[in-house]
Write a protein that binds this DNA or RNA. Structure first.
Lengths: 269, 269
DNA sequence: CAAATAGTGTCTCTAAGACAATATCAC
DNA sequence: GTGATATTGTCTTAGAGACACTATTTG
């Protein structure tokens, strides 16, 4: 009879074929467009970080940042390392949203992906990175009358359109089937749709939205984050009442905005 | 310049080392203990399916059913196939709850795991399976004054005790660090804790709990499912008011229970 | 009829939404 | 002052929890 040490000495993992494993990251940020009038508040938009593929397959298509899991790291470290290497941004938070494992999803071979949604804090993106081909796309994600989801990503003149169908969730987490993929590589349109669903599910709770903002912020900024993600609009009075539970005052105020200064808040510990 | 076809012809995936990938399944069922008095309602308990390991490593420890991802299947099919092969039960639903990828988590080598929570419908377990070493354990999962989580699994004379600490969720989904693992194999105590958290999060919504019950059920049965999972108790009047939205009546009634018959309901389409 | 669960009606309290009114700054 | 956002107060309504009461079955 073998003991455990002897067993491990003779155990051969490579008798079985193994997949390559990647982490792909859908990184979201709230961006504010330049104000028109000096005292009007800038518009907030949800945006997503994509990179343009320089090589095959899906050459010249846009894709989520991501790459292969290496020995000795966890899948979360891999996700953080890859987005950093490829786009020079560091997320404030990441969250696993699904596994994408269809055997034919990657023409290079058997490659499965762990998909993460991540949040980039407004204003932490340094310019001048090596990743010239990394760009922020404005996000639109809506359901039409027929129940199909339309994902529209815009950056300057470039528009990527994808159409997805929500999959019956028998035996599994909610997923999306791709009807049209636009110029998005692999199954990344489905990953983005899943990440957006997850983000919207979370954004209703306050805990989840602070990472979009700097350390201190006004309540209006916080409100805009939630409104932008959920694509809704709520009355300031009611938003403040609900938010009060999750924030604490600082002594600081905004200034120079052509209207009453706003107190700055921080997330309650 | 290569075209895509030429690229794929010469692409070599095996230049990089790859991990083995497994799916592990935490399968939950509601079991009802034999009634004491002829008209008293039986007690409901949440239970979890474990198998006893016959070989190294962790010989004689208890573990979640699971096994290696094979080429040509998705990770969800793998999870369903493995639990079926090893325990002869078929889940009504499965849901990914996390990736477990610590490099040292398996002494056999580089093996990462996709963890699923699954629901087994009451009464669908056939006896006499080949998996003599698969057993249902009653589940207790509670937080103590110090904030530590205690997981207690009981089957007859066998009791497995694990102590876990909730991990700060910076950079990721809520996770648990194992303080003491009892006789649970690998990091399965942490997987079970994560699955229980996910189950409790979902059980508050009605959508998630129907799979524990057969096609038709009484509202009291439905109430017991929710109460058992969440470890709470609510007033029948209030439960019914909330549940009404998610169920529809049938023409059937229970009988022979020594008290007023209950109408059977089914999940609303 | 006694014991037990099934089912209904209603009171109260709280949280969410709507709306009105006041405060304060930069030009 | 004007135009904009900041901030507070309060009315109304919808939903959750508590509780009292009635209905129906089988040993």
């Amino acid at each position: 009879m073998q003991n455990e040490h002897e067993f491990l000495q003779t155990y051969r993992l490579d008798d079985y074929e193994r997949p390559s494993v990647t982490a792909d990251v859908a990184a979201f940020m709230i961006r504010r467009t330049a104000e028109e009038s000096y005292r009007k508040e800038p518009e907030s938009r949800l945006s997503l970080l994509l990179i343009r593929r320089g090589g095959h397959p899906f050459k010249d298509c846009w894709a989520l940042p991501g790459g292969f899991l290496q020995k000795g790291e966890t899948i979360e470290s891999c996700a953080l390392r890859e987005i950093r290497e490829e786009t020079n941004v560091t997320p404030a938070a990441i969250k696993l949203i699904g596994m994408f494992t269809e055997p034919e999803r990657d023409p290079r071979g058997w490659i499965i992906s762990a998909a993460f949604a991540s949040i980039i804090t407004e204003g932490t993106v340094q310019g001048g990175d090596d990743a010239a081909e990394a760009q922020w796309f404005d996000v639109r994600f809506e359901q039409d009358e027929a129940g199909l989801y339309h994902l529209t990503l815009t950056h300057g003149d470039t528009t990527l359109d994808a159409v997805l169908e929500e999959q019956s969730t028998r035996h599994g987490a909610a997923g999306f089937a791709i009807r049209e993929s636009g110029s998005l590589a692999f199954d990344h349109a489905a990953i983005i749709a899943a990440a957006l669903s997850a983000l919207r599910r979370e954004a209703g709770k306050f805990e989840a939205i602070f990472d979009f903002l700097p350390e201190t912020f006004t309540l209006t900024q916080l409100q805009r984050v939630q409104e932008t993600i959920l694509n809704i609009s709520v009355l300031p009075a009611n938003f403040r009442r609900k938010a009060a539970e999750y924030v604490e005052e600082t002594e600081e105020y905004t200034s120079g905005a052509g209207h009453r200064p706003a107190k700055l808040f921080r997330k309650k510990a």
